[in-house]
């Protein structure tokens, strides 16, 4: 099994404190629409999959 790489976080600005020292880039969005758009675009460009942690944090993972 290949390793899975965490590429980025995408979160809303109000959720800032939910990630601490992520190690990979964190992208901030001002609302849900922008969050969805950034996540979608990043996923398409970097060939990654968007996962929803359920607490407002989206992660981009290269499977």
């Amino acid at each position: 099994m290949e390793s899975k790489d965490l590429k980025a976080f995408v979160i809303k600005e109000e959720d800032k404190e939910k990630i601490d020292n992520g190690g990979v880039p964190v992208f901030y969005a001002s609302d849900d629409e922008e969050l969805e758009y950034i996540a979608m675009l990043m996923a398409r460009i970097t060939d990654t999959m968007v996962h929803d942690l359920g607490n407002g944090v989206r992660i981009l993972i290269n499977h």
Partner: peptide
């Protein structure tokens, strides 16, 4: 966002 079949979660999709 957790897709599953018969209570087994198989995939988490973050894009609406």
């Amino acid at each position: 966002s957790n897709i599953g079949v018969e209570d087994v979660v198989m995939m988490n999709v973050g894009l609406n």
